[in-house]
Amino acid sequence: MAARKSAWYARSLEVALVLAASILVWEVAVRIFQPKPFILPSPSSILAEFWHQPGYFLEQTLYTLATTMGGFVLALILGFVAAVGIVYSRFLERTLYTLLVALNSVPKVALAPLFVIWMGTGAEPKIAIALTIAIFATVIDTVLGLRSVEPELLNLAKAARASEWHVLTKIRLPSALPSMFAGMKLGISLALVGAIVGEFVAGNTGLGQVILQAQGMFQTPRMFVAIIILGVLGTVLFYAVDWLERWLLPWHISQRGAAITHGA
């Protein structure tokens, strides 16, 4: 445990050092070569831009976070319901699953303008696009997970005359969780992409709009602030799901090696 923690600190320190060095090189390069600020601003001017009105950026970030989470949570719930339906119904498997796989090849970004016509310029179309992009990952990985149950385990349940409900809750669901989390990690990143696409297409709030408006006025430092916040946001969201997985599934296979050393 202690060894794992110190390894984690060492790795974090390395990442921080490389990042700090890159920023330093960037700053020095900009000061020496002096490119036009709207082409490549210096890190210090980007920081100044953020410092100038942090409240504004916080507000835009929270809006993007809210639409992302809205789309993600909906993708999770609807995806789960759809996956259970697909696993238990031959009909849904033949129809819905086939359709979903086919629809997945449509570039979902192309649907954004349509959603704006249907739902206006508020948060709804953004949530809808985030949902549309994220749901494929959650459905497909949940279906895979629910199906990955050992057939012999189902025999054990059948021999004890287990109810369908018990088979679902005591065997299928726990077996599916690792795969569902894989889908969630993908889904949360995709939901953020969806939210930004939605903001590009319409509305006047959110980090996507910050980027678009800054572009119109050649406020490149402001664009960089929004892009960096998006990077941080995406990373934080991904690791939040990862942390949730470690917390909920300490038994999961990818953690096994660590668990054994821990136990010994």
Partner: peptide
């Protein structure tokens, strides 16, 4: 009134040994 033991133990990873032992009794 019939118990079954298979070649593979079929213990599930997410339950402790005690809870694994209880699984079939929960089904029944």
């Amino acid at each position: 009134d019939m118990g079954i033991v298979f070649q593979r133990d079929l213990l599930v990873d997410w339950r402790t040994i005690l809870d694994n032992v209880l699984l079939v009794s929960e089904f029944r």
